[in-house]
């Protein structure tokens, strides 16, 4: 086995296998220094490089060749070199470029979060909250498409799509055959099926999970509820589909399972893909073996309704009496 190589990202060093990308090295460190990624998906070969949100600055190419790289690079595609020094959140240039990318992603996005099923678990929403400007400088009519039903379980809202190509790779690599792809070019590009073919195979539902925005939505869940009003519970069943893990999250509202999804990690990537039977047809508690509440990132709006508040409000932090009163609730977070 080759020796591990050292890379420093925002001042934190980590040793990784040769061939690791900057993004994955950052994920090994974890925390705020991990660049956001809208199109890269570690489980999909060939994905990444397109959205440009993960751009970082390479301040030192390697130990041997310490010159910086002339342009910002896509961290999901650039492999680390020994002694590489990367700047992500510490580089104003990177933050500026990322802000620009967010602005570009939003100029043709409908911003219909109030009626979008993805709201609350949308990567674009999170990204624009963290990196975007509060106002758009775009004053023109947005590009629009009609909604399309692609298959009986999935609806496509092309207006919301950011053309990450994840669903295309998913169909190529996870399902048995791809019948959809990207048509046209430039800002007229659209995800579409070939001559109105339906996406109809056992694994098609995974395109919903990989979609970072609300472009591909689950028709069995559409408009049923806001995700932050539902309660996520880990469950599994002994699925007889050979490629399906049967490990899912059930999203409850009261006694009812409103939807079933695959389990997603902290970067929004599914842990294992699930089949359509598990996703669309098993919506009774009796179909499943319940494991327990799903751990949701404390920064997520979904957790705010069900779990303790992640951080004390500033007003609490500033007041001795309130700190004392809330000590239990926030454990160690109050200094």
């Amino acid at each position: 086995m080759a020796d591990k190589i050292k890379v420093t990202i925002d001042g934190q060093s980590v040793e990784v296998e040769p061939g690791t990308t900057i993004l994955n090295a950052a994920r090994q460190i974890g925390g705020d220094i991990v660049p956001p990624a809208m199109c890269y998906y570690s489980k999909l070969k060939g994905s990444g490089g397109k959205c440009r949100t993960c751009l970082v600055k390479v301040a030192q190419g390697s130990e041997k060749d310490p010159r910086p790289m002339p342009k910002l690079v896509a961290s999901c595609q650039t492999q680390v070199m020994d002694g590489m020094v990367v700047e992500n959140t510490t580089s104003p240039e990177v933050l500026e470029a990322r802000k620009g990318v967010v602005e570009m992603l939003l100029i043709n996005h409908p911003l219909d979060c109030p009626v979008c099923d993805q709201a609350g678990e949308c990567d674009l929403q999170n990204l624009s909250f963290e990196h975007g400007a509060s106002n758009s400088r775009y004053e023109f009519e947005r590009r629009t498409f009609d909604k399309v039903d692609i298959g009986d379980k999935i609806q496509l809202h092309m207006n919301r799509c950011i053309l990450c190509y994840r669903c295309v790779y998913t169909a190529d690599q996870i399902t048995e055959g791809r019948v959809h792809g990207v048509l046209n070019r430039g800002d007229q590009s659209e995800i579409s099926t070939y001559i109105s073919a339906a996406i109809d195979n056992d694994f098609s539902g995974n395109v919903i999970d990989v979609c970072p925005v609300g472009a591909l939505t689950d028709k069995t869940f559409r408009f049923k509820n806001r995700v932050w009003f539902t309660k996520p519970v880990d469950a599994h069943r002994d699925c007889d589909h050979e490629k399906c893990s049967g490990n899912v999250v059930l999203w409850y509202k009261g006694e009812d399972v409103l939807r079933v999804t695959a389990r997603k990690d902290q970067y929004g990537e599914v842990e294992s893909f699930i089949c359509n039977t598990c996703r669309f047809e098993k919506k009774a508690t009796s179909d499943w073996i319940i494991e327990g509440p799903r751990k949701i990132e404390e920064t997520s709006v979904i957790s705010s309704n069900h779990y303790e508040m992640a951080h004390p409000l500033p007003v609490i932090e500033k007041n001795e009496a309130l700190i004392e009163a809330n000590k239990k609730m926030f454990h160690k977070k109050i200094k």
């Binding site: 959205c51 440009r52 570009m104 053309l163 046209n184 070019r185 430039g186």
Partner: peptide, 17 residues
Amino acid sequence: HHESCGQCSPCREGTGW
């Protein structure tokens, strides 16, 4: 704008803008 392939966000959206 007409010739952008539409793959990466800054070019796809920025050329039209």
